[in-house]
């Protein structure tokens, strides 16, 4: 029997050595599974809720980039929280707050905003020129003035009437304009799409800095022009629908 014991002791050596070398796997309370509503880690929240449209790293997604220091400098925390919580009616951005039918608690919305700021607000690339107000000012611009601004600044890529050219696509298409609001247009005019090569309001199409950035009035005028295209398209489709109704 003592032989037996010696044999077993010898055999114990290997597994024991394994345990000692790898350490016991005592569970760590930090890894305990959380309810979806308890998650406050920005990386997890972003990867579950935002990266689908805004891209894995906040850029190169179909929706406007969030990893954009100019945008983050313009928009206040309150703006960001409101858009996340309530969505942007009139665009594909849907509401994410529980109160609006989404899945996020107010704490989670705050966590996403502060995470965006700490991860993507690069202080060094703050624009030199004074910032335009972020929010659209209704009635501030006129389409006729906007047409002049457009032909000077935008037509080189988007075509004389916004019909698109080799360098960039159409912005006068009724479907495009129906899926974007004036506020979202204003944001794109100001920030451009740096991830897709569209310059911001301080830069020209070739990427060089402009002598004078687009000013507040010019930005509002361009948005007014695009809004007028949207209105024309809606009226035309309304007339088509009416004509179709009358012919029945």
């Amino acid at each position: 029997m003592s032989q037996c014991v010696r044999f077993i002791t010898r055999c114990m050596a290997l597994p024991l050595a394994c345990v000692i070398s790898s350490g016991c796997d005592r569970p760590d309370p930090a890894n305990r599974p959380l309810r979806p509503s308890e998650v406050l880690d920005f990386g997890v929240l972003y990867a579950q809720n935002c990266s689908g449209c805004h891209g894995a790293d906040g850029k190169l997604g179909p929706a406007p980039p969030l990893n954009d220091s100019l945008f983050l400098a313009m928009a206040s925390d309150a703006d960001l929280q409101r858009v996340i919580a309530e969505g942007r009616p009139g665009t594909p951005m849907s509401a994410f707050a529980r109160s609006a039918g989404g899945g996020l608690t107010p704490q989670q919305v705050t966590a996403i905003v502060s995470g965006m700021r700490s991860k993507w607000s690069a202080a060094t690339t703050r624009p030199a020129a004074p910032l335009s107000p972020y929010l659209t000012q209704v009635g501030h611009g006129t389409a006729t003035a906007g047409a002049a601004v457009f032909s000077r600044n935008c037509a080189i890529c988007h075509g004389a009437n916004g019909e698109g050219a080799s360098k960039a696509g159409a912005v006068n298409s009724p479907a495009f304009l129906a899926l974007i609001t004036d506020q979202a247009l204003r944001r794109i005019v100001i920030t451009g799409r740096p991830d897709l090569g569209m310059p911001d309001y301080q830069h020209a199409a070739d990427g060089a800095a402009r002598p004078t950035p687009l000013n507040e009035q010019e930005i509002s005028d361009v948005v007014a022009l695009l809004a007028s295209w949207r209105q024309t398209a809606a009226q035309q489709s309304g007339q088509v629908a009416q004509a179709a109704g009358a012919s029945r």
Binding site: G55, L60, G61, P62, G169, A170, F176
Partner: peptide
């Protein structure tokens, strides 16, 4: 909401296609 559209698909999209 979680799975990104592959970046290579996004890169050359025009405004309407992005929407």
């Amino acid at each position: 909401s979680g799975l990104p559209v592959p970046e290579r698909m996004v890169k050359n999209l025009r405004p309407l296609e992005l929407q």
